[in-house]
Every structure is written in structure tokens, then in C-alpha cells.
């Protein structure tokens, strides 16, 4: 059960996203339930991912926003990026240890977009196959991440 705080907060975030989307590159696709959203992001112009469309799935825990949402790429195509595994898991500090309750789904989308934009070479993470085999469809929040690349 979502708490009163998370319900209120998610309602507000949802309204905000529908009424004032942050940019044309972020678009809410669906929200079957309040705690499970799908957001489409479109690669920024003049980057390696320009015009490429990807779908992010957000699952919000009951004590959101104190706890971070679970965010993965879903759908047929997952961006090829050194920090994104082919099963959709994203290695991004703010999704795990560096999460702050003052961050929002929108802020996460912008962060991921900027992560894509600053990439200079489309290549999968090291040992992608091993990681994917091991984690399969488990939640990325169960992985213990190490963040060592501040550039991309």
C-alpha cells in the first residue's frame, strides 16, 4: 500500500508531468496504476541517440520518495550505452545510493537523457552478458552498484 505521503506526491508528480512536461523529449506513455509508470524518452538532438525512442519503466515503492523508484528500460530496444545493460538495468548513482527524496521521476528522466547525451561511443558495458545472465529480470535495486565513471 502506498502511504498518504507517496500517494499525494505521486499524484502531484503525475499531474505535473501531464500538464507541463519538462521537454519534448520526455513523454508519459501510461500509468496503469499510480505506482507503475511508463515514460518515453527521445534522444536529444545532435547526440549519438538523436531521435531514438526508448521506454523507461518506473516502479514506485510504498515509501517513495524516501526510497528510490525502480527504473529500467523496457520494450524491444534498450539503448546501447556503457552504463546500460542489455536487460534494461541502468548504472546511475541517483537511482541507488545517491537517491534523494527531493528528486522526482522527471529529474530521473532528465538525468538519464543527459547520460545518453554525454556518451561518445555506443558500446555495451563490460561483461554485459554475464551480468544479464546472472540478474535476469530481477530488480536492479538488488544489485550492489559501484559508481566509478563520472564522465558519461
Amino acid at each position: 500500500m502506498l502511504t498518504a505521503l507517496s500517494t499525494k506526491r505521486l499524484m502531484r508528480e503525475l499531474n505535473q508531468l501531464i500538464k507541463n512536461p519538462p521537454s519534448s523529449h520526455v513523454r508519459l506513455l501510461s500509468h496503469e496504476t499510480l505506482d507503475k509508470w511508463k515514460i518515453q524518452i527521445i534522444g536529444a538532438d545532435e547526440t549519438l541517440y538523436a531521435d531514438e525512442k526508448y521506454i523507461l519503466q518506473f516502479k514506485f515503492p510504498n515509501d517513495y520518495p524516501l526510497e528510490s523508484p525502480e527504473v529500467v528500460f523496457v520494450g524491444d530496444c534498450v539503448p546501447v550505452h556503457p552504463h546500460i545493460y542489455s536487460n534494461g538495468h541502468i548504472c546511475l548513482s541517483i537511482l541507488y545510493q545517491q537517491w534523494s527524496p527531493a528528486l522526482t521521476a522527471e529529474a530521473v528522466c532528465i538525468s538519464i537523457l543527459s547520460m545518453l547525451s554525454s556518451c561518445t561511443q555506443k558500446k555495451p558495458p563490460k561483461r554485459d552478458a554475464i551480468y544479464v545472465k546472472r540478474t535476469k529480470t530481477a530488480s536492479p535495486k538488488k544489485t550492489s552498484w559501484r559508481f566509478d565513471d563520472d564522465n558519461v
Partner: peptide
């Protein structure tokens, strides 16, 4: 709520401002 959560996780003086990266 934020502080309570942190305290129950075992944190004490290391709790910082909830703003991102602050």
C-alpha cells in the same frame, strides 16, 4: 519521516540534508 527512516537504518550524525547531492 526522512530522519526517522535514516535512524531506523542505523544512521545518526551522518544524516544530511535530503536535497540531491547536498
Amino acid at each position: 519521516t526522512y530522519v526517522t527512516g535514516k535512524v531506523l537504518e542505523g544512521d545518526s550524525w551522518r544524516i544530511h540534508c535530503p536535497a540531491p547531492k547536498c
